[in-house]
Design a binder for these strands. Structure first.
Lengths: 395, 395
DNA sequence: AACGATTTGTCAGGAGTCGAAACTAACCCG
DNA sequence: CGGGTTAGTTTCGACTCCTGACAAATCGTT
């Protein structure tokens, strides 16, 4: 293929794209074309995780033959996703390999973070997770269809900016939103946005002409820590402390969704029957001890010793709630994401101690309880990671 | 194919068998032959769950064409797994359909339950989960390689009996054992058997000439409740109260294994820092409140009111430990498996109340907390279900 | 009784996908 | 300079699935 294309312009792809939603469902037929798409995704995943490799290396890594890998790579090159790099004469015998690499900086992704309506964040990221450009908008007070229209308009703007910046193409749009979101990107319920059963991904995909993928914000954080933060693929839980408290769980590289799509919703778990009243109308929810507003209020004007006691108590509450989950799922890691000045000190220490004390001791120092690697861009980068898995099929 | 074969004799299969371990790994290549095996498993799964169907019905259910389904069915008939049934003239227009059905009673599976060494149970089951024959053995006191040899000999006996009883063939052997077992059937650690890193499945597969699959006993129970007991496919946890306390978690139809293959090991979760001492050397493990020996001892000679109080307290402990797991995973169901006289009354009620009180209330009465459907054959039937998923690829 | 409509199951042909074997290209080493 | 080695491509064959067409069997209508 020698046709040239305007940068960022959408055009038909040569190779089949994976079905939206990612991997193969166990109880669904597999057609040859889907097998091809899967192998294509495997190749992309290896290139994503292990950097530039020659076709022969890819064949060894994937188990496919060099012939098949060459075909797949040709398709990826035609799609502007992959490019041949300069052959390095690597002191070995034989014909020097031609490394091919993901065009990680030429392909862009749009990510939107709806966590706080008063400061909705939109960003353009490249495939390495780097934020190329970022904007914010104030959607404070908008609800229902007005909020929907505003989100659409905001996405349209960021998407346009991404398209003009992309040297290759824009893969899609990822949105992290509070509320309950199902695997098709339908917002089942989002109180602050006034949405209920809004097929957000479908609506915006039609409106924007780009693949839109939606996920709960805490789940996005967990996905980001897994894809870009190096959290354990076999099992990790990311607890996000913000206005409220949420979490996301990744098992075997896949997000846990739950029967009602509400996995990770531990904010309103009751941890003290007669604890402080919560917005939800009940008492002693974990969120009443662990949210930025509650914590800052509890620390307001206290002595250092008192502050430490408050943080330690909150960490203990968290650890007590996490321990059964860690034990039941045999998690490798628990990550705390949020303001470091609140989380990184006594709170983390207390949570770690509570979890370790409650679980059977193991040889290694697992489970690891640590602060998250990603700063406040976790949701954005998680939404971007969702686009990668949705549009390219790897994670 | 018109060759006839002695019943139960192992012979090469016409169609590719799924790789041991079941479903497709996300980050592995897919060959055409594997796609075929997958579609074959899908057809088998539909026949298993939805009873006899015509080829045309199978095509509609799976999304494959009638042509492809016919080919797959022909292979399954050649493998004695499926048979054509009598055509029922079903009052509809068109050529009457020929229903084909799983030969569920002609194909057998061997299952072994190593939970209690003093009463090792072996059984022959058909594919519907019915126990055709059962034997026990006393392997009390055997450890290490002696235990291994004894288990092999016991399996050999049951397998021989199954082979002579099978009208079609014996699919394989499933073993449920205490201890930590990885997904390849290697027993990483089993204290009472003195095993550590014993590749039990591999060793017995070679020794017996039949596919052997091994799983932790509590996980087998969870698998049985899912496959034969009708527990929710989207997310359920089965807690098994026996000599100790264990659990298994099924999410999206798949067993959760965990980073160190120890998922479900909640027996030694500390629920009371200064609780009663446990065999593990620590104090206040959940198992010290919830195991058959501890419970019976605590109930010994008590008044009915006192008994109820003990059971309620144990249920509360359990509920408090389960609630975070239920919330974090958004589980649909929690099942309690074990002696009904201990579990079914105040203990279950208290556990249910604790879980419901601690979790955000939902419209439906989820999560369901109930006793398990299967009686003491849960481990055996779970081991059998493991053989189904391992040898036939569906679950 | 005959005919069309409908449904089932199969046959024939074609498009995809992957692997094995052979080949060319390019490099190192002796 | 030639042999050995590695990378990438070409060719061919096997396998899987689908589309379109067909025969078989039944119901309903004429």
């Amino acid at each position: 293929m020698t046709t040239s294309t305007a940068p960022g312009a959408p055009r038909p792809r040569t190779a089949p794209r994976p079905a939206p939603g990612g991997g193969l469902r166990p109880s669904a037929k597999v057609l040859p074309a889907q097998a091809r798409a899967h192998n294509r995704a495997v190749v992309l995943g290896v290139l994503f995780h292990s950097g530039p490799l020659s076709r022969a290396d890819l064949a060894r890594a994937t188990g496919l033959t060099r012939v098949t890998v060459s075909e797949i790579v040709a398709g990826l090159v035609a799609d502007d996703l992959v490019a041949e790099l300069q052959a390095r004469s690597g002191g070995r015998v034989g014909k020097p390999a031609t490394p091919v690499g993901l065009r990680g900086e030429d392909n862009l992704v749009v990510a939107v973070d709806l966590t706080r309506l008063s400061a909705v964040r939109g960003a353009v990221l490249d495939l390495t997770g780097r934020v190329v450009e970022e904007t914010t908008a104030d959607l404070h007070g908008l609800r229902g269809s007005a909020a929907l229209a505003a989100v659409e308009e905001f996405c349209r703007g960021v998407l346009g900016s991404a398209r003009s910046a992309a040297r290759a193409s824009v893969l899609g749009v990822g949105i992290g939103t509070p509320g309950v979101v199902d695997e098709h990107g339908t917002v089942v319920d989002a109180a602050n946005l006034g949405w209920s059963d809004v097929p957000l991904a479908q609506l915006l995909t039609d409106a924007l002409g780009a693949g839109v993928h939606v996920v709960n914000d805490a789940n996005a954080g967990a996905l980001a820590e897994f894809t870009y933060g190096g959290s354990s693929p076999s099992g990790s839980m990311t607890v996000m402390v913000g206005e409220g408290l949420g979490a996301g769980i990744v098992l075997d590289g896949h997000l846990v969704r739950g029967g009602r799509m509400a996995a990770g919703e531990i904010g309103h778990l009751t941890v003290a029957p007669n604890g402080p009243p919560c917005e939800c109308g009940r008492r002693g929810c974990l969120e009443t001890y662990l949210s930025v507003p509650r914590l800052t209020a509890a620390l307001e004007g206290r002595t250092p010793a008192r502050r430490r006691a408050v943080l330690t108590a909150a960490g203990r509450r968290l650890g007590a709630a996490l321990a059964p989950v860690v034990a039941a799922l045999d998690l490798d890691e628990v990550l705390l994401s949020g303001p470091r000045d609140l989380l990184a000190g006594p709170l983390l220490d207390a949570a770690r101690r509570s979890v370790r004390d409650a679980c059977l001791p193991t040889a290694d120092d697992v489970p690891t309880v640590r602060t998250a690697s990603l700063e406040d861009s976790a949701v954005l980068r998680g939404a971007a990671a969702l686009v990668l898995s949705g549009e390219l099929g790897f994670s």
